[in-house]
Amino acid sequence: MKFALHLLAACWLTFAAGAFAHPPRGIAVAPDGRVFFSDLERIWAIAPGKQPLVVRRSVGAHVHELFLDSGGHLWGEDSFYDPATARYRAGLWMIAPDGRFSYTYGPTGSPTFGAGVLRDRFGCSYLVGETRVRALLLHRLCPGGAPQLLSDRAAARDAEPPVLLSNIGGAAFGPDGSFFFRHRGIVQRLRAGDRLVTAAVGFAPENYGIAVDRAGALYVAEQANRRIVRVDARGRRSAPIGAEAPWAPTGVVASGGALYVLEVTDYARGAPTRLRVRRMLPNGQVQLLGTVTGG
């Protein structure tokens, strides 16, 4: 998509100059309490009671999105851009529970619609994008099958081939297997039978992370407003956790009754961007799990 091409190019060129024009939203929590997150160029892990450790360094690629499946496999995407040729490549990778790394798709300069990081219990992946006029595109790709268009078919006529293998906004699965995703200021939900409905509206028009807890409550990271917005199953809103300047949330995940938030600092010319992970317990207590300097 031309819009995605221009956006990705701007992000790469600005980041190369030392800025976080497009901070990562990738954060995932394992059943044993380990927290994984991306600083775009490195994947970090925080074990309970330990300091953050680098578990993977990308080579010339950015990692925007992370997903941990029920088998304990950590999934992510690599997005490559060569400014000399203005060409893009993208690949999907997986880190097994025993630490083995492998590419599961690509890297390729011609990604397939629907090839994405998040995957359901059947192994089907989802990719949310936009057309040239910014209409929604939602594809699903199941093992051994062809891409399935799940959004408006009329919009597909205006589609460009995909460039990124991460969703255009935050995405998450609900407790019933529904797929939630963010598209500008709206969060939509793909329900059983491929029925697409609006879950909630009125959020900051950003592309940052979302989460759904086991009770079906939705959490949306609003970087511009330095807060996480919660929308419960009855539509009631609250802001359970905020951040003080220069910090702002970009990623969020609900796990084990707790809320984990990935935050980055505002960009200041000449100053390194920092990232931190905080956890809010069910009683409202907020704990700092770790802080790192972006790579």
Rank of each mutant, 00 (worst) to 15 (best):
2 K>H: 13
5 L>M: 13
7 L>H: 10
7 L>V: 08
10 A>S: 13
14 T>K: 14
14 T>S: 15
14 T>N: 11
17 A>D: 14
18 G>A: 09
21 A>V: 08
22 H>T: 10
22 H>G: 12
23 P>G: 10
27 I>V: 13
27 I>D: 03
30 A>G: 07
31 P>W: 03
31 P>Y: 03
34 R>L: 00
35 V>G: 04
37 F>N: 05
38 S>E: 04
45 A>W: 00
46 I>P: 01
47 A>T: 08
47 A>L: 11
48 P>L: 08
49 G>N: 05
49 G>M: 08
50 K>D: 14
51 Q>D: 15
51 Q>H: 11
55 V>H: 03
57 R>E: 15
59 V>C: 04
60 G>Y: 04
61 A>E: 09
62 H>W: 10
64 H>S: 12
65 E>R: 05
65 E>M: 07
66 L>G: 06
66 L>K: 09
69 D>V: 05
70 S>D: 15
73 H>Q: 12
75 W>C: 04
78 D>M: 11
78 D>Y: 13
78 D>I: 01
79 S>C: 14
79 S>Q: 15
83 P>S: 03
85 T>E: 10
88 Y>P: 00
89 R>T: 01
91 G>D: 06
94 M>R: 15
95 I>E: 09
95 I>W: 00
96 A>N: 09
98 D>C: 04
101 F>A: 09
101 F>H: 13
102 S>Y: 00
102 S>D: 12
112 T>W: 05
115 A>C: 07
116 G>H: 05
120 D>W: 06
122 F>P: 00
123 G>I: 10
124 C>S: 15
125 S>D: 05
125 S>A: 12
130 E>S: 12
133 V>H: 15
136 L>V: 13
138 L>F: 10
139 H>A: 05
143 P>K: 03
146 A>R: 14
146 A>M: 12
149 L>P: 06
150 L>T: 10
152 D>T: 05
152 D>K: 07
156 A>H: 13
158 D>H: 12
160 E>C: 09
163 V>H: 02
164 L>G: 03
165 L>E: 08
168 I>L: 13
170 G>E: 04
173 F>L: 07
174 G>V: 04
177 G>P: 01
177 G>V: 07
177 G>C: 06
181 F>I: 04
181 F>C: 06
184 R>H: 12
186 I>M: 11
189 R>I: 09
189 R>M: 14
194 D>P: 04
195 R>G: 00
195 R>F: 01
198 T>A: 03
198 T>L: 06
201 V>G: 08
202 G>K: 07
203 F>S: 02
206 E>Y: 03
219 Y>Q: 05
220 V>H: 03
221 A>P: 03
221 A>E: 04
221 A>S: 15
222 E>C: 01
223 Q>Y: 14
223 Q>T: 13
225 N>T: 14
225 N>Q: 15
226 R>C: 09
226 R>N: 08
227 R>F: 02
227 R>T: 12
229 V>G: 00
232 D>V: 07
238 S>V: 03
240 P>E: 07
241 I>S: 00
249 P>N: 08
249 P>V: 09
251 G>T: 05
252 V>Q: 01
253 V>A: 11
261 V>I: 15
262 L>N: 01
264 V>R: 10
268 A>G: 06
268 A>K: 15
268 A>S: 12
269 R>Q: 14
269 R>G: 09
275 L>E: 02
276 R>I: 04
278 R>L: 14
282 P>G: 07
283 N>E: 14
285 Q>H: 14
289 L>S: 00
293 T>Q: 11
294 G>T: 12
294 G>P: 00
294 G>N: 07
295 G>I: 00
